[in-house]
């Protein structure tokens, strides 16, 4: 009887120590699901989903607070990937959060810019350079097209220019031609 108790206690202590060690040694920093969701989101950091950035939205999806169809830049494909990841139904993009647009970049009309620095503060990815009372300009390759700089501009000198197709970005088209019904 005593031996049995001792053995059981011994096993309990050993296993407890092992589990305790493992919980420290193999601790996963952060929520892996949030990272996975964040990897799917387009990182425009535009806030159209209602959260201040892609990561907070990913957090909200993971907590079940937000739906998966609130990201217009991610578009239908983003929703499909999120649905695949989370095992949910694909649904159309929620209209209140905006519509899917072709990728554009911000362009500052340098003749009109007064150098107020408001757009620099608004840019989530530090893609606008300039200083107070100096002309500002957008570093186009870094611009995510989030449009957050458009509203703060007091002289309305920022416009969104859709990206033109270049030889580098040109793609072969999908060879399947859908049949059109004769009108």
């Amino acid at each position: 009887m005593l031996t049995a108790i001792l053995i059981m206690t011994g096993i309990a202590i050993v296993l407890g120590a092992a589990l305790g060690y493992a919980s420290i040694r193999f601790k996963v920093a952060g929520d892996p699901l949030v990272e996975k969701i964040d990897a799917i989101l387009p990182q425009t950091q535009c806030g159209q989903c209602g959260y201040p950035g892609c990561k907070p939205y990913a957090q909200a999806i993971s907590n079940g607070e937000a739906d998966i169809n609130q990201c217009p830049p991610g578009g239908e494909e983003g929703i499909r990937k999120l649905a695949d990841l989370l095992g949910r139904e694909v649904k159309p993009l929620s209209e209140e959060h905006g519509t899917e647009k072709p990728k554009s970049v911000a362009r500052i009309d340098e003749q009109v810019c007064i150098g107020c620095t408001l757009c620099i503060q608004a840019c989530p990815v530090d893609a606008i350079v300039g200083a107070a009372k100096q002309m500002h300009t957008v570093v186009a390759p870094l611009c995510t097209g989030c449009e957050l700089c458009v509203a703060p501009c007091p002289v309305d000198c920022i416009s969104m220019a859709p990206l033109a197709e270049t030889v580098e970005t040109w793609k072969w088209k999908y060879p399947v031609h859908e049949l059109r019904s004769a009108a």
Partner: peptide
């Protein structure tokens, strides 16, 4: 077509990784 799409995705992913890093740094 497939190759073009895969390359485009690769470019997009690089761009979004960069945007994420810049956003986090900001």
């Amino acid at each position: 077509f497939s190759k073009g799409e895969i390359w485009a995705r690769e470019r997009e992913r690089t761009a979004s990784d960069q945007a994420r890093a810049r956003f986090e740094f900001r």
